[in-house]
Amino acid sequence: MKRYAFLLALPLLVGLTACHARRTAQKPDPLRNAYGTEVDWNNSDHLIPLDYEQSQGKRLFYIYCVWCHADSTPAGPSNRYNLTPTPHLMNDGAVLNSMSDQYLDNIITLGGSAMGKSAMMPPYGNTLTQAEIRHIIAYTRAIAEPPYHKPNRPLPQYKAR
């Protein structure tokens, strides 16, 4: 009988060591499998992991949007304070989180005046592809502060709120 007990104990031991190994395995670094990263605009020590689409959006943002939708630009002072009404910061979650993806898509594609907003926001529908506009929206959602959560019910397409 003792012999059988030993045989039974063996797989248990093996199983225990396996569990142990798994428990001591390191917690995965969230940036390890990130396609790209962006520095949190409000906290330069914090890096936000970006997936493929968000990284493409980041690239496009720094080409087309940064001039008016950020406080500092690669070329120096921002154009934001030259404009009335002042454009929203791209990470302003308090405002942008309540706008639906479709609404943002519309305002980028058709421009501000088509959506009853300032004509200072030009239409980019001929300049950017549909996919590129979607990428920019994905990037906006990734850097939003407060963070963006996908709403349970769809938000309106043609109104800001």
Binding site: W67, C68, N79, S118, P122
Partner: peptide
């Protein structure tokens, strides 16, 4: 008025920096 080009281009001392 219609296209508000002054948001990005300056004429004289007035306008945008883009």
């Amino acid at each position: 008025v219609k296209y508000e080009c002054q948001s990005c281009h300056t004429i004289g001392a007035k306008g945008g920096y883009v």
